[in-house]
């Protein structure tokens, strides 16, 4: 049952993911007083890409072919491990496992950028690797803090703790950690102020530069993977911030329906948040990234202190 629940949850996220990307894009267009692309556009783009031919550089090896699969698989694994609709008692989403799976996806993306002999891909790879290395302290410290608050180091228990009756008591304690997590997720998903997902200028790219050489089905896999990652990470974050409508076993069709609608609502909130951030701040210069990362880490560490001082120990 827990397994079926996890599958259903992952399938839900996977189906929603391109829509989430489309929705953020539309919201951003509205912030620019434009009408913007239809929300369903990413679905059509992915379908088109799957049907297209692939052109691949002669300077690549078998790694180049393996990359899209591993990256997509790591995103799918995240969707499978991270509880979003609710928790089923499987306790699969260990915090360090989730962090490592994210890193695995990044590393392979970096290999994809390096296996092209193009300076654009190489530059993106170098930058992406730097960012994902520097973001680790903030990620692990803030996840560790949430684990301490919840009393168990996996995301299901954290979600369980946050959706319990006394959630309002712990939200203020966890606020700083959640903010640090938000900063980390912005960086992990290549959003402002770390990266510009809509840039056409190779020199300002991080994530986009690595996928410049991909086409067709491989590109679709990579784009889909980043959409899934964005959706699942922000869905989890919003689950903690707005712990409403989270199901757990045993559930009825009604509670499940409520959970699905609530998750949609949370994703709308997350999209609004991301679009708002992206429309009101500017991208930071890459060589100022250590300031952003240090800020993330300091906030996470302050969150840890806050949790230790005001939270109940185990």
């Amino acid at each position: 049952m827990t397994l079926i629940f996890s599958f259903a949850q992952a399938a839900f996220i996977v189906l929603l993911a391109p829509g989430m990307v489309g929705f953020v894009r539309t919201l951003k267009a509205r912030f620019q007083n434009r009408r913007g692309a239809p929300i369903l556009l990413p679905y059509w783009s992915l379908l088109s890409l799957f049907r297209k031919e692939m052109t691949i550089t002669r300077n690549s090896s078998w790694i180049f072919h393996a990359v899209p699969f591993v990256v997509f698989a790591s995103a799918l694994t995240l969707a499978f491990l991270i509880p979003t609709l609710g928790y089923s008692g499987g306790h699969l989403g260990d915090i360090f496992l989730v962090g490592a799976i994210m890193a695995l996806g990044s590393v392979f993306l970096v290999f994809g950028g390096m296996d092209t002999a193009s300076a654009f891909g190489n530059m993106g790879s170098s930058r992406e690797m730097t960012l994902s290395a520097l973001v680790e302290p903030a990620l692990y410290v803030s996840l560790g803090t949430l684990a301490i608050i919840a009393g168990a180091p996996n995301l299901e228990s954290i979600l369980e703790r946050f959706s319990s009756a006394s959630a309002l008591d712990i939200l203020p304690i966890a606020a700083l950690s959640l903010f640090a997590l938000f900063l980390v997720f912005l960086s992990e998903n290549a959003r402002y102020p770390v990266d510009n997902p809509a840039t056409h200028l190779e020199l300002t790219m991080v994530h986009e530069a690595m996928v410049l050489e991909y086409s067709g089905a491989y590109l679709a896999l990579l784009e889909y993977a980043s959409a899934i990652k964005l959706t699942v990470l922000f869905a989890f974050l919003m689950d903690l911030v707005v712990p409403f409508g989270i199901v757990h076993l045993p559930f009825t069709p009604l509670t499940l329906l409520v959970a699905c609608v609530a998750l949609l609502g949370k994703l709308v909130l997350a999209a609004l948040l991301v679009a708002f951030v992206e429309s009101t701040i500017v991208k930071m210069r890459f060589y100022r990234m250590q300031e952003f990362m240090s800020l993330g880490f300091i906030v996470a560490f302050a969150g840890l202190l806050l949790a230790l001082i005001f939270g109940r120990p185990l």
Partner: peptide, 27 residues
């Protein structure tokens, strides 16, 4: 889980049959 998701990724790439591949130079 890793094996399963890898298989799913592979299946996803073959929705419309094996992709046609053309070799070119690096852009």
């Amino acid at each position: 889980i890793v094996m399963l998701t890898l298989t799913l990724a592979f299946v996803a790439s073959r929705i419309f049959g094996a992709p046609r591949i053309r070799r070119t130079d690096t852009w």
